[in-house]
Design a protein around this nucleic acid. Structure first.
Lengths: 254, 254
DNA sequence: GCAAAAGTGTTCCGGCTACACCCATGA
DNA sequence: TCATGGGTGTAGCCGGAACACTTTTGC
């Protein structure tokens, strides 16, 4: 899958693709980031919009889930993550609207004028653990703060928006914030995740009590070192306990 | 669109379809129903599974939303309803698994062996207002209690399950129960909707208070007549007030 | 008159909110 | 020593849950 003309392969479905919205959280800048690829420059024309979500055509024999995993790996080298379907996007003109998009498709697809519908996936991962490296038709694969993301290729800005809304909803109803953090994290870091993504301020004491009462965090015998303040305890998410509780309790909302 | 071989039309996308899960509520039987079509019998073979969700290929120039509206109308005559995208289903073998499905596709599609992915839609409507009448390749279009639905064509049983889960979630988080009822309804009827779909019993006084406190119901100067008990007030849903409140309040859960 | 659903209040409890100070650490 | 975030307790309030009887109507 390193040939930019992989689209020539016979087993690709020429009008159905997957696109991946992969979120990560930058603990230094306290910012939500998203994984983007930069298109390879083509000498024939100038781009206005360099960036796109990682995505490509599906194969005939794949499920959507398999396609998403494969495509993400091919373009960014990121693998072994959980991707969830967001929704399908299929406006008839979604790949024709911008001149740049059309030209770009001509360089990577045998049938560049086909109407392509896409199944969008999203995922929450630990940004520090997964370092993207580009390949295939991606020139670069980078983390970019969501608030700095420019207009993207095709309808990818719209897809990103939908994914962000889905993330906010999910964060309010299920304990998914952990997925954006390292395995060991402090309660302050977790609170930052919630505050940053939801765009709200939370009371430290209330947040702490609520989280600990959910009984899905394990306090470790370990503290964060090297910070210019009282060293906080590290916690980890108790997956097993969560799954056990999930069925009886209904509400994990913040 | 009344020809069973509409698939011959050039502007249909041969590998992408929409399927509609339309829910209605039977106030007499107090049962959740779903709209199904019965396939036209073909003399060449026997069916084991007669029923399917209304669905068909999309057209080249349509959005998914437009396709869903058109297809539903073509097959069941039901129109002017709000359909929402559920998710995409695209297992590679979803149309091949059952012999009957393959044979049936051969009678209605020019490329019956194509891998077809489908975008599922769902909707909640007033069962009494919308009387389905079949056309196109549907022999019948009928309301059927969800609990009585047999194994459906293709992966439609799986789609129905997903839609039912989505309905339950939505019912818990947004005031959507009204859509399943006539414009004027009693609080008892509304409670039945919740109890039936969620499969739980609710306390009458608590339910009533909670609903009325949401401030999105208008009590009418009218009572239900002809019932063998104290005649209850009729209410209607206040769409405008709901929309005004929706943005400030977050939680409309039951 | 009887069956069937409508309609109505109160108490208890748990969770949410608001709020302020001292502590440990590295620079 | 100072700046920075860590860590802690309480009181008031609100909403949810549990709970029983009288009323109206058609048959």
């Amino acid at each position: 899958m390193t040939d930019a003309f992989e689209g020539k392969e016979l087993d690709l479905v020429q009008n159905i693709s997957v696109d991946c919205v992969v979120f990560g959280f930058d603990l230094n800048a306290l910012e939500l980031n998203v994984l983007l690829i930069e298109r390879k420059k083509n000498p024939d024309y100038e781009y206005e919009d360099f960036f796109a979500l990682p995505g490509n055509l599906i194969r005939q024999s794949e499920t959507f889930d398999q396609s998403a995993i494969r495509v993400l790996k091919e373009l960014t080298s990121i693998q072994d993550i959980f991707l969830e379907q967001l929704m399908a996007f299929g406006n008839p003109n979604r790949t024709y609207l911008k001149e740049n998009d059309r030209k770009w498709l001509q360089t990577i697809r045998p049938q560049p004028d086909e109407r392509v519908v896409t199944i969008a996936y999203y995922s929450l991962i630990n940004l520090e653990k997964y370092k993207p490296t580009a390949s295939s038709f991606a020139k670069k694969a980078i983390w970019m703060p969501v608030k700095d993301v420019p207009e993207l290729a095709f309808d990818h800005s719209q897809i990103l928006n939908k994914a962000f809304e889905a993330l906010k909803l999910k964060l309010r109803t299920e304990p998914v914030g952990f997925n954006l953090l390292p395995r060991k994290f402090t309660l302050g870091q977790l609170q930052s995740v919630y505050e940053t993504i939801l765009g709200i301020e939370l009371d430290k004491r209330n947040f702490r009590r609520k989280m600990l009462n959910k009984d899905i965090l394990i306090q470790l015998d370990e503290k964060q070192k090297g910070v210019a303040h009282k060293s906080p305890y590290l916690y980890k998410f108790d997956q097993a306990k969560y799954e056990a509780l999930r069925d009886q309790k209904f509400d994990f909302s913040l």
